[in-house]
Amino acid sequence: MTDESREGIPPVVAEAIDAANAHDTERFMDTFAPTGSVDDWGRVFTGREAIRGWSDGEFIGSAVTLDDLQFSAVPDGVAVTALVGGDGFNGPSTFTFLVGSAGIERMTITA
């Protein structure tokens, strides 16, 4: 992402995207609140241990890339439309990030 595209984006969301593209699991995990969750097309993983297991198997562990990013504000966060690449799912997805004071509270992945 360019610095210009980050305007209005919660820094923790930009960090999560950068960490995913760098395949840096520790940085990615550090963006989540301790009770945060990932909703991957209806499958919910709550807490850092569950998120790490999901990511190791299906996200960063599958060499994910997030390109062609478009951002739109949502209450308490941001929706990011991305072209997903890597060794798993490939295609467009929307990642909706809800952000609290402790980090990402929920990342929901949909079409």
Rank of each mutant, 00 (worst) to 15 (best):
E49P: 00
D18L: 04
G36N: 02
F71N: 12
F71D: 15
A19S: 11
D40G: 07
V78T: 15
D40N: 08
W54F: 15
F28E: 08
G86K: 01
E15K: 05
I51G: 11
A73V: 13
D3N: 13
R52E: 15
S62G: 09
V78G: 06
V64D: 13
T25G: 10
T65Q: 02
P10M: 14
S5R: 04
A50E: 09
A73K: 07
E7N: 12
P34I: 06
D39M: 01
A14D: 13
G36C: 02
R27K: 12
D3T: 11
S55L: 04
D18T: 14
R52Y: 08
D3I: 12
V78E: 10
V38D: 10
V64P: 14
R52I: 07
E58T: 14
F45C: 05
A33P: 06
G85D: 08
I9S: 11
Q70W: 05
D18G: 13
F71H: 15
D67S: 15
D3L: 09
V80A: 11
R43L: 04
R52C: 07
Q70S: 15
A14Y: 08
F71L: 05
D18I: 03
V38C: 06
L69K: 11
E58W: 09
G57N: 08
S5K: 05
H23L: 09
D87H: 06
D67H: 06
V38W: 07
E49M: 00
G36L: 00
I9H: 10
E49K: 04
D87I: 02
E7R: 11
A50W: 00
L66K: 06
L83K: 13
D56L: 03
D40H: 03
E4S: 11
H23R: 08
S55Q: 05
T35C: 02
G53V: 02
E15A: 15
E4L: 09
G8V: 10
T25L: 15
D67I: 09
T81F: 01
E15F: 04
H23P: 07
E26T: 11
I17Y: 03
W41S: 13
G86M: 00
A16K: 01
D40E: 10
V74P: 06
S72F: 07
T31I: 04
I9T: 13
V44N: 04
F32G: 11
S37H: 07
G8P: 11
G57Q: 06
V12K: 03
V78Y: 07
R43M: 05
A22E: 13
V12N: 07
T35R: 05
G88V: 00
R52W: 07
L83A: 12
D68E: 14
A20M: 09
T46Q: 02
D40I: 00
V78A: 08
V44D: 10
A14S: 15
E7Y: 08
D39P: 04
D30I: 01
A20F: 06
L83M: 07
T81Q: 11
E49L: 01
E7G: 12
D87K: 01
D56A: 10
P34L: 01
D3M: 08
A19H: 09
H23A: 13
D30K: 02
A82R: 01
G85M: 03
V78I: 14
D30N: 15
E7P: 04
G61I: 06
D68R: 14
W54L: 08
E26P: 06
D18P: 04
E4K: 09
T25F: 05
S62N: 09
E15W: 01
E4W: 05
V84S: 08
G86N: 02
S62P: 00
D56C: 02
G77N: 13
D87C: 03
G61V: 08
